[in-house]
Design a protein around this nucleic acid. Sequence first.
DNA 1: GCACCGGCGTAGAACGTTCTTCACTCGTGG
DNA 2: CCACGAGTGAAGAACGTTCTACGCCGGTGC
Lengths: 358, 358
Amino acid sequence: MAEFPERSAAGPARPARRATIKDVAAEAGVSVAAVSKVVRSAYGVSPEMKSRVQAAIDKLGYRPDVGARAMRGHSYTIGVVAPELSSFFVTEVIDAIVSQFEGTAYGVTVMLAGADADRQRRAVHGLIDRKVDGLVLVAPWTPFRWIEKVARSVPTVAVARHGASQDCDTVVSDDEQGARLAVDHLVGLGHRRIAHIGQAAGPDDSHPLSHVVRQRGYEAAMRAHGLEPDVIVGAYSDRGGYDAARTALARAETPTAIFAGADVAALGALRAIEDAGARVPGDISLVGYDNIWLAGVKRIWLTTVDESSQLTGEAAARLLRERLDEGRTRAARHTLAPSLIVRGTTAPPPQGSRLPAD
Amino acid sequence: MAEFPERSAAGPARPARRATIKDVAAEAGVSVAAVSKVVRSAYGVSPEMKSRVQAAIDKLGYRPDVGARAMRGHSYTIGVVAPELSSFFVTEVIDAIVSQFEGTAYGVTVMLAGADADRQRRAVHGLIDRKVDGLVLVAPWTPFRWIEKVARSVPTVAVARHGASQDCDTVVSDDEQGARLAVDHLVGLGHRRIAHIGQAAGPDDSHPLSHVVRQRGYEAAMRAHGLEPDVIVGAYSDRGGYDAARTALARAETPTAIFAGADVAALGALRAIEDAGARVPGDISLVGYDNIWLAGVKRIWLTTVDESSQLTGEAAARLLRERLDEGRTRAARHTLAPSLIVRGTTAPPPQGSRLPAD
DNA sequence: GCACCGGCGTAGAACGTTCTTCACTCGTGG
DNA sequence: CCACGAGTGAAGAACGTTCTACGCCGGTGC
């Protein structure tokens, strides 16, 4: 098959345009409409015509122009909006989405927008301007009302936003349960003073992002054990975890365990604890959340909660394809169960620690 | 400004279409051409008309359709093709490109294709079908000839491919020098038996990918010190590094230092070494390459080579903008200098080790 | 022999832009 | 008083598709 036309033909003064459907029609000696039918493998083409057109297509290296197509209907493009790529969760979700659409007529294009509502909004607009057929919003920071408005004009899946919706499909991990798993594990080991590193709430309350629910889950689980929650609001970053842990260590009664809402923050906390001369898990136990790749590295070996990012991406892609290919119109919600991965940063509290009371 | 139209209007039976330039023209009581001029802030609009049109645009929430625009020229879209996102280098490059185009008329769309020539080819085609104005290929695995052909039809920057080109802009880090920095550092500490974990060559030789040049640089640097190179061909992955290190440890004369061509591989090697009961850097020193975030984590604290991924991304974006905005047509090449980051995984070889000979 | 049908193919009108061409209105210099 | 140019605005032809509406053909049922 012919490849790209040269921009400015070096030798003979050829026009060097990209072949269009008209060129193919001329080459095959048929009408433009016929070529279109063949390309779309639509109804009403004789085998003879089909092969003739196909030959012309191959000869000219014809590929349909997506923009022109989009003007008449579908762009065969799925848009994904994600915050930064440094988060392992995000990259895994994206990879899963891409591979779900691999081999279909759809292409997946990703736009990066940070954890910034305005940039995300602009990215979504950019995608809609490009007439995407479907949208996946990963951990979107914008108000849910706005997302639903978007969803009413193009099929949309919101990932990592809790709460029901009429218009928008959602995929979430059960963060409440994840937090409970972490707390139960620590309590089971004998811990009673367990601090949590959280993050400021975010855009709205009715459809919270994961971290808010994790914190709520933590609080509920603590109370269920008759323990007092101790939340330190920090940030899901190395720095945030570091600072939060220092705050915790400065408490009158130092916690014997820290449950960080994200592995990155847990790493920062680990650094702070070790800088302070304490040992993990000897003096303080540490649990993260996300199961990033790093958590499984031997020297770190962080106990954490896995939210199956890959399944999340697959579910998002599947929901979209249901809308696109099968014509589903009712909103769907998909919830995944997290699991605890016990590794090396948790152990029973040190001897001097207070025993369970009741 | 008005937001998205509802797909199927709930209350009054409104058409619910997205506003087009025609709607704006009607609303403002001017011609379509005039609106187009205002949108493009082209020459020949009176202030009075401009403000009238602008008001209509705001009222209707009009946004130009990118597909329709693309048919007449520019799509204002930059396409980036990258292998997987798990590599820190890649994500940093992409982030830098995105932020360079932030605030311009251009949108950046990313396509993921793995380290697989065919998938990358398909991704590039997909982007060209979408009429991108510019292309950045990050560590492309396809033959360079093919890339140059692409570059002749749309401005293209190849990142991490060495060698000169007439058609295609390139941005590379001086991998030869990077390897030399690593070897010099180890030799300076007294090491003589230094193994290298490399990766199979790839698509072509005239314009090699980084890892090939790193290996060559390692070999040259070793010879410059009068030492025999010891290359273990593995893969740039945790598993690849693990296996390669085991191979090295099985040597009759065990190396006292390992220089891995990538940090991920170094991590795998670290695991293998510690699994074998040896200590880093006590028994074996270890140097990586890439300076991924993880290398800076306290518990790892890997000595490595930084190739300034951010500057790479910025350079790529700049080269593209030179072509797009300033009309440069000659190919340009941009080379960045890597730097050594000495951390905790390198030390003088253990006592029993042979002393420098000459 | 005629109406009708299914199968195949074509013409041509959209789709939402940009941009060239043209027309109109002033003000100005001759 | 006329020609002219600058400044503004409008009309309309692309751009590359899809898709509806239609036409032609040979066969079939009456």
